[in-house]
Structures are given as C-alpha cells and as structure tokens.
C-alpha cells in the first residue's frame, strides 16, 4: 500500500492525462451518442438556436442513403477480399521463412519494408504503376503514350492492356488495384506476428510428426495452423479492424474523389462517408460512426468466438 497516505498525489500526477482524456476522448463518446440520437442534428443550426427531437431518424437516414450503401458494400468487399488473401499469403511466407537458414534475416527485412511507408505516398507509386499516360484515355480519340509498367508486363505475357484506374475504367479493375495495394500493405505486420509465433512453437511436435512420417501438408494443417491459431486470430482481428477503417489507401491511389474521374466516390468507404458528413451533418456522421463501431465490435467478438471453438489446446 505504497503512497496510500497521500492519494491526492496520484490524482495530481494523473491530472494532465485525465483532463486531456475528458476533453478529447470521453466527451466525444458521450457527444457522438447524443448527436446520433438527435434527429437531423447539425451544429450550425444549434448555434442558430434550433432544438432537435430525440429519435432514430439519423440511423434510418444513413441506412436509406444510397451513398452509404455503396460505402458499406466497398468496405465489406475490401475486408472480405483482403483479409483472407493477406493472412494466407503471410502464413505461407512465414512458414517458408521459418524453414530456411541462409538469407533469412535479409528476406525478413525485405518483407518488413512496406510497413514503414506512408500509405498516401506509396499509393501514388501504385497509381503510377497502373496508370496509362496519354490523352483522352477512356474517351474519344484516345492516345495512349505508355500503358504503364503493369500493363507492359501483361502485354509481355501476351495479354491485353487493361484500363485499371483511368477514366472509364471498370469497377472490377479499380477493386483489383485496391486489393493488390492493401494486401501488399498488410503483409509486413502479419508476417512479423506469424513468424514470431512460429519461432516460439515447440520443435518436439515437428519431430514427432517426422517420426510418424506425416506429410508436409498434413504437418502444416494439423500442427502449424492449430499451434499458430492465437496469432492467426490476432492478425485476422486487427486485419478486419483496419479493413473496416480503410480510407487513406484509397486516397493514395485515387485521390480525394475516391474513384476514377468518370466515377467519383465509386470506391468511397465508411470512414470516407463519415469524413464527408463531419463538418455539416454531424447527426448523420455520428450515426454512421456508431454503426461502424457496432460492426467492428460484432466482427471482433465473432472472430474471438470462432477461434475459441477452434483452438485445440
């Protein structure tokens, strides 16, 4: 019971953190819930002395709003596509890295490289790789000077150049670019965690499997994956949380208009929706933020529940 004679001292030390948390964390939680349940809440009108009714109109408004459905669809699609792909790839790469000796550190460093990058800046690099340079692309009198390095590669293997991100590009092409970029971005963290997990796995299990003559595939599915399941759960959960908050990687590639020039906001996400409403439609933005929180919460709990059922030891 050290220091119990002077409890005020503890509170004194805590005061800077408490004051800042009250203003920038606790109040926002209360206020967001409040604004979400005041129908059509708008800070400008409040300043003009307007009063708002309590109700669920904001939520109804958000869900019925067509743009929100697009945002929700994009966000869920990106999550469902990128989380399994990146987790699987990271798992395979980690297992391979764990099975080699020379050059392991060097390869490990390379795989970690994308982590310390700026998602807007490198998004611009990806955009450049997929971008066609020329005049009137996607329109009449199209003149393509260079179709971009990725299309060069496709053409090299005998394929046809694809309009990935320019005017008139298809939604599938846009999504493909986003999935590639997000997976590329998500790999390093997942590899770091999974490789760390692999290195702490007891070697005895593998020796036993070897004695029994278990095949490599079986060893992988029956030993490696179950033993790694806590780490896999962890990267899947953080992956879903990150995925539901996807925003800046899309801004990196497509800019603030969140889509090709011909279809602005085609790739808008939940967070993008919240940011667009933030300055003048606080009620709707708050409702959307609460929905986002709800989704993240449910998905996290679901993941935890499933992993608990599937953890064998």
């Amino acid at each position: 019971m050290v220091g119990s004679k002077k409890p005020w001292k503890a509170w004194l030390y805590l005061s800077p953190a408490i004051v800042l948390l009250l203003i920038f964390t606790v109040w926002p939680i209360i206020n967001t819930v409040r604004m979400a349940f005041l129908e059509g809440y708008n800070a400008l009108a409040v300043a003009g002395g307007k009063k708002f009714e309590f109700g669920f109109a904001n939520f109804v408004n958000v869900i019925e709003y067509r743009d929100f459905v697009t945002c929700l669809k994009n966000t869920v699609l990106l999550c469902v596509l990128t989380v399994p792909i990146s987790t699987f790839l990271a798992l395979v790469i980690s297992v391979c890295l764990n099975a080699i000796k020379p050059f392991r550190r060097m390869l490990q460093t390379i795989f970690f490289l994308p982590y310390v990058t700026n998602s807007i800046a490198i998004g611009m690099v990806f955009a450049a790789m997929f971008n066609m340079v020329g005049r009137n692309i996607g329109g009449k009198n199209e003149l393509i000077l260079t179709a971009g390095i990725i299309n060069n590669v496709i053409e090299f293997f005998g394929g046809q150049a694809i309009n990935w991100i320019n005017k008139g590009s298809s939604e599938v092409a846009n999504m493909t670019v986003m999935v590639i970029y997000i997976v590329w971005n998500a790999l390093p963290f997942k590899i770091l965690v999974l490789l760390g997990g692999l290195q702490s796995v007891n070697k005895q299990y593998y020796d036993a499997a070897k004695v029994d003559g278990t095949s490599r595939l079986r060893t992988f599915t029956r030993i490696t994956v179950p033993l790694l399941s806590p780490m896999i759960t962890y990267v899947v959960i953080t992956g879903f949380i990150g995925g539901f908050k996807e925003y800046s990687s899309i801004v990196g590639i497509f800019g603030e208009k969140m889509g090709p020039t011909s279809n602005p906001y085609r790739l808008d996400t939940m967070v993008g929706f919240i940011y667009r409403d933030l300055a003048n439609q606080q009620g709707r933005a708050s409702a959307a933020a609460l929905i986002l929180f709800g989704i993240i919460f449910v998905v996290t709990m679901l993941n935890l529940y499933i992993s608990k059922k599937n953890t064998h030891y």
């Binding site: 926002p28 206020n31 967001t32 604004m35 919240i274 933005a285 933020a289 986002l292 996290t300």
Partner: peptide, 20 residues
C-alpha cells in the same frame, strides 16, 4: 476504462473533436 477506449475507432472521436 482506459483500455476499453482503445476499442473505439478514432473516427468516432473526430466528429466531436472537430467541433471542440
């Protein structure tokens, strides 16, 4: 309580913080 706030997405704070 502090740890619990970590679960909440930052965007939820942003709306109010912008007004603040």
């Amino acid at each position: 309580a502090l740890l619990a706030t970590m679960m909440i997405p930052g965007e939820l704070f942003t709306i109010t913080n912008y007004q603040t």
